[in-house]
Nucleic acid binder design. Structure first.
Lengths: 376, 376
DNA sequence: TGCACTTTGGCAACAGCGTTGCTTAAGTGG
DNA sequence: CCACTTAAGCAACGCTGTTGCCAAAGTGCA
C-alpha cells in the first residue's frame, strides 16, 4: 500500500505537508542521533550513559541502539574510562572505515576530489584542471575518471558522490542553471549523468551550501549561522537548526545581489546597487576597509532578519585580509545591534577549511544524512 | 531519571542539540498530524482513508488514532460520503468546542481580545482602550479583566492565553524589551505576570509573528512565506516549513532597519538608509509608488536570500493602497528574478485578516501546537 | 430479487520500539 | 574482606504501527 518496509529507513516518502512517522522512521531517527554524538565525540569516544543523558533516552534504549549499530559494524567498543567508584564506563567509538563518500568540487578552472571516511576525515585527494567549455559529456567523463582513480586505492563501501559547484542549480533534481559564461550547460542533468556513469548515488549542490554544511558538521552545531563567501563572486550558505536552508526551489543564499544602495552603481546582473558590485569595486580599488563595511551592512541585514548566532567569512578575498574583514564586519554588526538597543552578541570569525573545504562539504552531502542532518 | 511519562506528550525536554524520540512523542506527532488534516478539512470533513493517504500511515493506524481522538472528544463522526461502488466512507470532523484559546492584541493605544475555538474561529470578541503609560501592573490588571469578561460567556475548557504586541521581546521567557516610548516596560516579565494573575498558560510573541502564524494556519501551508507589515512601523514575520522562524534569541523578522541605501537619510534608530525610514518618508510625502518600490527592493533581498514561495503584505498603509503595493512590490520581485535569469514566480498578495488578525494569531500561539506547528 | 463485486473499517495477532524491574559485572574505599 | 557504587545486560512489559482476515454496506448486473 504505502511503500514501507524498505531497509534503509525513513519510511514513507509522501510529497506535500508533514508526514506520519512510523516505527522504522523512529528507529532511524534515534540511531542517527546516537551516531551523530559518536561522531562529535571523535577519538575520545563516548559512553552509553553519556549518550543516554544527551539524547534523553533511557540507558537501556541506548544499549539496544548501540547493539544494533555494532551488528552493522558502525560502532565499536574501545577501552574503558576511569572508574568513579563503580564499574568503569565503556568507551564507544564510530568505526571510520564503515563507509566512505566522495566529494567533488568543480570550480571555474579546477577540479578537486576527496574521499572522506564516516568521520569526515579526508583519506584521499586528487586535483585536476577543468575546462567547462569542453562540453558537458567530456567534463562528466573526466570527473568520473578522477573519482575512479581516487577509489581504486580505497576498499570501503561507497555511500555515493557529492558534487559542489558555483551558480544556481536545482538541488532536488541535480540540474544546472546558468553556469556563467557557458550557456550550453543550461539545464544539464548533472546528477543523472554522473549517477549513470559511476553507478552510484549522486547529490549536487551549490559550493556555498557545501561549505556551510561542512562547517555545520565540523562545529557540531544544531544552531544557526551564515557562511558568507567573498571570492570571484559573493554568496552565502545559511544554516538553521544545524541543517542547510535551501528554500522552496533550492535557490536560497543569493546574498550578492542584495540591494544595499538604491539606484547605486550598476552591477553585472543589470541591477543597481547590489552588494556584490559595491564590495568587489572597493576591493578592486584597494579599499578593503570599505569592502568590509559594505559586507558588514549586508551581514547586519541578514542577522537582523534571521537572528542567527554566528557569521563565518570565507573565500579568497577574505583570506587575503582576514583581520580587516572580521573587524569591519564585526564592527557593523555591533553598531547595528547597539542602535537597535541590543547588546552585541553575534561573533564573526573566519571559516576554517582551506582549499579542500568545499570538496569536504560535497562529501558531507552524503555523510550528513546518516547523522540526522536532513538532506533538505 | 529523565522526566518522561508526562501525559501531555512530547516526552523529554533536553536543552541542546536534537533530542531522542520515544513512543509518546511519536504518538503525539501522528495525532497532531491527523488533527491538522481534520482542521484543514473544516466543515467538509475527511475520511479515514483520505487521512491514511495524506499521512502515509496505514488505514488501520489511522483508525486507531481516530479512536483515541474520539475518546478524547476531539473528533466526531458526521455522516457519510457517497459510495463509489462499495461501503461509503465515514466523514470525520473536528469538534470545535473541545477547547478554546484567548488571543490578546496589545497595540499602542487599544486592546483587542478574542476567544477562538479549536478551528480558530472567533467565538467572542472585546475591545478596550489601552494606555501603556499607566504602568505594567495596571495594564496587566485591565487586560486580565477583559479576558475574564470574555470568558464569562464561554464554558469550554481553556487552553491558555496568547499575547501579541509590537516591539522586540523574548518569546521563550515572555519578557518585554524596549516598548517604544515607555522605558518602564523594559524587562517586564509579562508572561509570568499574566499567568499568575489568570492562572493559565500564557504565551507572548511579537504582533508580526502572531499575524504570520495566523496566515500559516489559515492557508494550511507547510511551505514558506514572508508577511510584511507596513503601518506605523515596518516589520516582518517569517514562516519556513509552516512554522514561524523566530531565530536564536527570538528576535528574527527585523525587516524595517535593513539598510537599502548606504549612507542614506537618517532613521529614527540612529542609522542611515534603513528601509523603514525611506518607505515611511515616501508615504509621508504622498509618493506611495516610491514607497512600494523601496519595499519591493527589500522584499527582493529577502526572497533572494531565503527563496520563499510567497509574499503577503499587510498593515494600515498597505490597506489604504493595496493595488499600488501589490503591483509595485510584485514588479520589483519579477524584475529581480528576471535579472538573475529566473522566471518570475513569487506571488505577492494582500494578507487577509482585518482588525482581528493579530488577536487571532495570538490565540493560535496556543492552538497551533496542537496541530503540530512547533511552538518555536 | 438475488448474487457477484467493491470498498470501508474493525478485530486479532504480530513484530518491534523504548521502558521498567531486576540481576550481574566490575570497579572503589574503609 | 566486605559494603557500597556504578555500568550494563536480561526479561517482561506496554504501547506503537502493521498485517491478515472478516463483517458491514454499498453498487451493478442478471
Amino acid at each position: 500500500m504505502n511503500g514501507n518496509g524498505n531497509g534503509t529507513g525513513n519510511g514513507n516518502g509522501r510529497a506535500a505537508g508533514a508526514t506520519g512517522v512510523n516505527l522504522l522512521a523512529l528507529r532511524s531517527h534515534n540511531g542517527a542521533l546516537v551516531l551523530d554524538l559518536l561522531r562529535t565525540a571523535g577519538a575520545a569516544g563516548i559512553s552509553r550513559l553519556e549518550l543516554a543523558d544527551r539524547t534523553g533516552l533511557t540507558p537501556q534504549a541506548v544499549s539496544k541502539i548501540i547493539a544494533r549499530l555494532r551488528v552493522d559494524g558502525l560502532v565499536t567498543e574501545a577501552g574503558y574510562r576511569a572508574s568513579t567508584g563503580g564499574k568503569p564506563r565503556t568507551v564507544l567509538r564510530l568505526v571510520p572505515d564503515a563507509g566512505h563518500a566522495v566529494g567533488l568540487h568543480l570550480d571555474r578552472d579546477a577540479l578537486t576530489a576527496v574521499v572522506c571516511d564516516l568521520t569526515g576525515t579526508v583519506v584521499g585527494e586528487r586535483r585536476a584542471p577543468l575546462y567547462l567549455g569542453a562540453g558537458a559529456e567530456a567534463v562528466v567523463e573526466s570527473a568520473a575518471r578522477e573519482v575512479e582513480g581516487l577509489l581504486a586505492e580505497e576498499g570501503a563501501p561507497l555511500l555515493g558522490v557529492g558534487v559542489a559547484l558555483p551558480g544556481p542549480l536545482d538541488h532536488l533534481h541535480g540540474v544546472l542553471h546558468r553556469v556563467t559564461g557557458f550557456p550550453e550547460w543550461e539545464g544539464f542533468p548533472l546528477r543523472a549523468a554522473l549517477a549513470r556513469r559511476l553507478r552510484t548515488s549522486v547529490v549536487v549542490d551549490k559550493d556555498t551550501n557545501a561549505a556551510a554544511l561542512r562547517l555545520a558538521v565540523a562545529l557540531g552545531t544544531h544552531g544557526s549561522f551564515a557562511y558568507i563567501h567573498l571570492g570571484t563572486g559573493l554568496g552565502a550558505g545559511l544554516v538553521f537548526g544545524g541543517a542547510v536552508h535551501r528554500g522552496a526551489r533550492t535557490r536560497a543564499g543569493e546574498f550578492g545581489h542584495q540591494i544595499v544602495q538604491l539606484d547605486g552603481p550598476p552591477c553585472s546582473c543589470g541591477n543597481r546597487g547590489c552588494i556584490e558590485a559595491l564590495c568587489l569595486a572597493a576591493v578592486a580599488r584597494g579599499d578593503v576597509g570599505e569592502a568590509a563595511r559594505v559586507l558588514g551592512a549586508g551581514a547586519a541585514n541578514l542577522v537582523g532578519l534571521l537572528d542567527i548566532e554566528l557569521v563565518l567569512l570565507g573565500g579568497r578575498t577574505v583570506e587575503e585580509h582576514p583581520d580587516v574583514f572580521v573587524r569591519g564586519v564585526g564592527a557593523m554588526l555591533d553598531e547595528w545591534a547597539r542602535l537597535q538597543g541590543e547588546e552585541p552578541y553575534v561573533p564573526v570569525r573566519v571559516a576554517s577549511g582551506g582549499s579542500l573545504g568545499v570538496a569536504e562539504g560535497a562529501a558531507q552531502l552524503l555523510l550528513a544524512p546518516l547523522f540526522g542532518r536532513a538532506d533538505g
